[in-house]
Amino acid sequence: MDLTELIKLSNDYGKNEDYVLAGGGNTSLKDDKEMYIKGSGTTLATITADGFVGMDRAKLNAMMTAGYPQGDTEREAASLADMMAARLPGFEEKRPSVETTLHNLFPFRLILHVHPALVNGLTCGQDGATVAEELLPGEFVWIPLSRPGYVLSLLCRKKLAEYKEKYGKEAQILLLQNHGIFVAADTREEIDTLMNHVMERLRSKLGRTPDFSEASCDTKKAESLKRELAALYSPNGKADLICNHEILSLVASKRAFAPLAAAFTPDHIVYCKAEFLYTESPDLMDVKFREFMDKNGYAPKVVCVKDFGAFILGDTDKEIATSKMLLLDAVKIAVYSESFGGPLHMTPELIDFITNWEMEAYRQKVNKE
């Protein structure tokens, strides 16, 4: 299959930070028998033909009616094994996207799945589903909060069938609560048209955008905190500081910090961990840091401090840069969600599931390499 069109679609959207950050999002191209989908751990901005995985659609179709175990661990292991077995000859060493079975559900050639902050302002909003129907009446399928992977594919299969029964046509826009958007079409031109339409409708509803203008803080104290946090993080730890007006507003008090107190989407868990450390007492940083680690079992990737902003921690410059992008994404979502009923975070149960999910652990591992 000629992947030129798929590569161009992937690179164009992947290089646009309004749509894709780090290794997020995925794309696919299919015919009746085969599907080529982004490999897990690859990056849309730079992906080439080698980054896609060829899949047997008949085997993927069979997965949707397979009798998998009910337990989470057993079900995910069995469905992952079948997904790996559905790889075409020559792709046995590559790992397909976790959302491969979901891509396969759409009867369209091209699929674009991305996590734009603007879209997630809606999908992570208390009134997201209601506002979506107001802005895009009859144009989309809304998927309520769900565990990812095979369970999500089953839910989407059901909702897509209900849409077809109701409207007499196939759905081309899928909005997933606390996750992102799928757009499906037979041509690149139609993908762009649909995506632009959604973004324009959402912009029409926005009350405000984030104020990322640079702010000031006690520079000498900030440098001291950076050194302390880097040492607390790990023997080779590094730290950076983001200090802008929006973040300073969000860290002004524990109440103001509430929009950032839990994860919005799986990407935030993968790249920034499930929770940030917040403190109004920087002089007690070592105590607060150890309390956080005792409670959560991991060191924070983001430490938010009143009057300073957000400190980003990691072992490498790449880790810090990626976490910084995802933190700013979370801030955007928090602000955008104000226009869609206020912030709605993932549930503690789902956060725990994703934190311990093998497929997301794989993405975390790749990000560190």
Rank of each mutant, 00 (worst) to 15 (best):
S10L: 04
N11Q: 13
Y13N: 07
V20L: 10
G24S: 15
G25H: 05
S28T: 14
L29R: 15
K33Y: 06
T48F: 01
N61C: 04
N61H: 07
A62W: 00
G67Y: 02
R75D: 00
A77F: 04
S79H: 11
S79K: 11
A85P: 06
R87H: 07
F91S: 13
S97N: 12
V98T: 10
T100Y: 04
L102R: 08
L110E: 01
L118Q: 04
G128K: 14
G128S: 14
T130M: 07
A132R: 10
E134R: 01
F140I: 03
W142R: 10
P144H: 08
Y150M: 03
K158M: 02
L160P: 06
E162V: 06
E165K: 15
Y167C: 07
Y167S: 11
Q172I: 11
L175K: 06
L175Y: 04
V183N: 11
D186Y: 02
I191R: 13
L202S: 09
R208G: 03
F212Q: 12
A215I: 10
K221L: 01
S224H: 15
K226H: 01
A230R: 01
K238C: 01
A239F: 10
L241E: 04
H245L: 09
I247S: 08
F257L: 02
A261I: 02
T279R: 05
R290M: 09
K301C: 13
F308C: 09
F311M: 05
A321E: 11
D329M: 14
K332E: 11
V335H: 08
G341A: 11
H345K: 14
H345G: 14
D352L: 06
F353S: 14
T355G: 11
W357E: 10
K365G: 03
V366S: 03
N367E: 14
E369G: 12
